[in-house]
């Protein structure tokens, strides 16, 4: 009794205080960082998140006139680094980065108590997966591979970066749409999974196109289809057709990457970064070049647009986990509707 009364009081005080803080903040909308900003990349150095975040960090650095330091805190499917960003002082100097769908599913998997709404999202690129096979395998098209998977259920091996990875979501979506069974072989990350397919240890991979681009260009992988509804152009190779051409009922929403700032930081931080996003990132040549050379889609977005863009992937990911029996908390209770 006493306790709940005190809580109400605290909330009231906090609310009025934040009003006091918010009023002058809205007036002076720009934020001038006085010390280096840290972006925690919750994955290992050299991976797809790390690469795109470093390109973006350099652009933000130019725009804000302050050093942006990228710190790698890999481990536990990205939940450790994300947790540290969430628990850092809410002064606007600690951000994180990654795939937005992960941010939305940590709570479902019982890894971290956070929702996508707890974060201000600043998206930079959308990554899609490509279904590729080792060139020594006989499969020349999606149809041939699917037929083979139907003929030998659970015998065709597919390399991914593990449960929850983009590659796993992609092959799960394919399996669901075509009703095939496959042999799931997991690796330490996207690149090792791709390398295993190149070396012939596995027959196929569905990792991100950015992770396969080099090998596709070097003819060490044979791309069969982009796991999505738009074709992709890779410099030095040509066009990869979308999977929707062969598998009509296929649906896999794009996987957006970006930089995330936990809500609760001073509002002028969010306002300033939003401005940077609209003025600098949208026109960033470096980021555009990165995207086109790696087979990613340049897709800057912020605010409500960003949230709307990432929700489909969060829904698919969360419910995929729930249907596989991995969910500790039902996505329903977290307000994630079934896609």
């Amino acid at each position: 009794m006493d306790r709940s009364k005190r809580t109400t009081l605290t909330v009231a005080i906090a609310a009025s205080l934040s009003m006091l803080v918010a009023l002058p903040a809205a007036a002076q909308a720009t934020w001038k960082p006085e010390k280096p900003i840290t972006i925690i990349v919750p994955w290992a150095a050299g991976g797809s998140t790390d690469q795109v975040t470093r390109v973006t960090a350099a652009e933000i650095e130019k725009a804000l006139g302050q050093k942006v330091v990228v710190v790698n805190q890999p481990g536990a499917s990205g939940s450790i680094g994300t947790k540290n960003a969430l628990e850092a002082p809410k002064d606007g100097y600690t951000w994180t980065a990654g795939a937005a769908k992960d941010l939305g599913t940590y709570a479902v998997l019982g890894m971290l108590d956070t929702k996508i709404g707890d974060w201000a999202l600043f998206l930079n690129v959308a990554n899609v997966s490509t279904l590729s096979v080792n060139p020594n395998t006989p499969y020349k098209s999606v149809a041939e591979l699917v037929d083979a998977m139907k003929a030998k259920p659970g015998q065709i091996s597919v390399a991914t970066a593990g449960v929850n990875s983009s590659g796993h979501s992609a092959i799960e979506a394919i399996a669901k749409a075509t009703g095939v069974k496959y042999k799931h072989v997991t690796y330490d990350g996207g690149n090792p999974a791709v390398v295993a397919t190149v070396a012939g240890e596995t027959d196929a991979t569905t990792q991100l196109t950015v992770e396969q681009a080099e090998m596709i260009r070097g003819k060490k992988l044979r791309p069969l289809a982009v796991v999505g509804d738009k074709p992709i152009e890779i410099d030095g190779y040509g066009t990869i057709e979308p999977l929707t051409k062969t598998v009509a009922n296929f649906k896999d929403p794009p996987n957006y990457f970006g930089i995330f700032i936990p809500k609760g930081v001073p509002p002028q931080v969010i306002a300033t970064v939003e401005k940077v996003w609209n003025e600098n990132i949208r026109n960033s040549k470096a980021l555009k070049d990165y995207a086109t050379s790696r087979g990613a889609q340049f897709a800057p977005a912020s605010g409500a647009d960003a949230l709307k863009a990432v929700m489909p992937a969060v829904q698919v990911n969360a419910w995929q986990a729930a249907d596989a029996g991995k969910a500790k908390v039902s996505p329903d209770t977290l307000g994630i509707a079934r896609p």
Binding site: A44, A45, G46, D50, N72, N191, P192, V195, V198, A199, E214, G218, K220
Partner: peptide, 15 residues
């Protein structure tokens, strides 16, 4: 090397 994004191993001559 791993921390610095170099992945030593069989593919190093390719990568």
């Amino acid at each position: 090397m791993l921390i610095h994004g170099v992945r030593p191993g069989p593919m190093i001559m390719t990568e």
